[in-house]
């Protein structure tokens, strides 16, 4: 079983929101699609799930195009939309029953499946409460549960953890892992949180401004940064002259400042510490700590685009 997107492009009016995206999912893997807001992730997903037709390019299931004949794909695909696509005036159970029925489940089979999913997403106790009385995390869990009703082989999740507390988020991440391990479900996990993607995914696509700018396993992607170190400095007070001086150094790349933490990228072969201490002395900057960090996907993104993943 393989699902792939080939040179997918979507143009709205004049702008190409998705531009020549190639992506594939193989049975049993968890693949991450990482990118900042507005990168075109949701549009890509809508095309892969056959909700909107691409301007050009193709979506193939086992090498057969599904754009003209979406039924085959829809049977094996579950989609967790970015939005809470639920009836807030219905209870959790009623939502599952409704969506189950439109997936042609009925009777005892439907009942069994609904109970099973309620268990999976931890909502058995609250099954009869109206969704509008649920917390953000519970809604997100049900949003996932609905996509599991027809036991899909592929599941595409579009930012399934936005706007919820860390505990719910962990629960969801664990659920995704479990689905993959226990049911061999193939997952395309979309997010702008690199920690989530790092935690879950075997392979990763990084997307920005409509294009895939990097792809591969975690290690492969991080190797993009093999020639650079990330240096994180904590300072007592951020002095503008120090930042300006850093930016003027040709060996220092991508200076970012967050509160009292200054992060830079610098080539591995250069001992950047001497330079940093010298500049600090000149500008009366006092370090509280300086350390070289192992690169994160965040750093990769920074390296590739010159921008932070999150604004």
């Amino acid at each position: 079983m393989m699902l792939e997107a080939v040179e997918l492009t979507k143009q709205f009016k004049q702008t190409k929101v998705v531009n020549g995206v190639n992506l594939y999912l193989e049975k049993g893997e968890i693949v991450g699609l990482l990118g900042p807001n507005g990168a075109g992730k949701s549009t890509t997903i809508s095309m892969i799930s056959t909700l909107i037709p691409p301007t050009s390019g193709d979506v193939r299931l086992n090498n057969k195009s599904v754009i003209k004949e979406p039924s085959k794909l829809r049977k094996v695909l579950g989609v967790v939309p970015q939005e809470i696509a639920l009836y807030s005036d219905l209870s959790a159970k009623e939502n599952l029953q409704f969506f189950g029925r439109i997936h042609r489940l009925s009777g005892a089979r439907l009942q069994k499946k609904v109970d099973e999913i309620l268990e999976q997403i931890g909502l058995t106790d609250r099954q009869n409460d109206l969704v509008k009385h649920f917390s953000g995390g519970m809604k997100r869990r049900l949003n996932i549960g609905v996509a599991l009703l027809h036991e899909p082989e592929f599941i595409i999740m579009d930012e399934p953890t936005v706007g919820i507390d860390p505990q719910s988020r962990n629960y969801i991440l664990e659920t995704v892992k479990r689905l993959n391990e226990e049911k061999q479900m193939t997952v395309l996990y979309t997010s702008h949180y690199m920690e989530e993607v790092e935690f879950l995914c075997d392979r990763i696509y990084i997307m920005d401004k409509g294009s895939i700018i990097a792809s591969g396993t975690k290690e492969e992607i991080k190797n993009i940064l093999s020639s650079e170190n990330t240096v994180e400095m904590k300072v007592e007070k951020v002095q503008e002259p120090f930042i300006d001086a850093l930016r003027l150094q040709p060996v220092v790349n991508h200076v970012t400042v967050q509160d009292r933490v200054i992060t830079i990228l610098a080539p591995k072969e250069i001992n950047v510490f001497r330079l940093l201490f010298k500049l600090a002395e000149e500008t009366n900057t006092v370090f509280t700590s300086v350390e070289i960090k192992t690169p994160t996907l965040e750093d990769v993104f920074l390296h590739l685009t010159g921008r932070a993943l999150r604004d």
């Binding site: 909700l51 979406p70 049977k75 989609v79 939005e83 696509a85 969506f99 997936h103 609905v146 027809h150």
Partner: peptide, 13 residues
């Protein structure tokens, strides 16, 4: 608006 309709389409209705 709530994308429930998308879900209905995705269920191949």
């Amino acid at each position: 608006q709530l994308h429930v309709f998308d879900r209905i389409l995705l269920a191949d209705v």
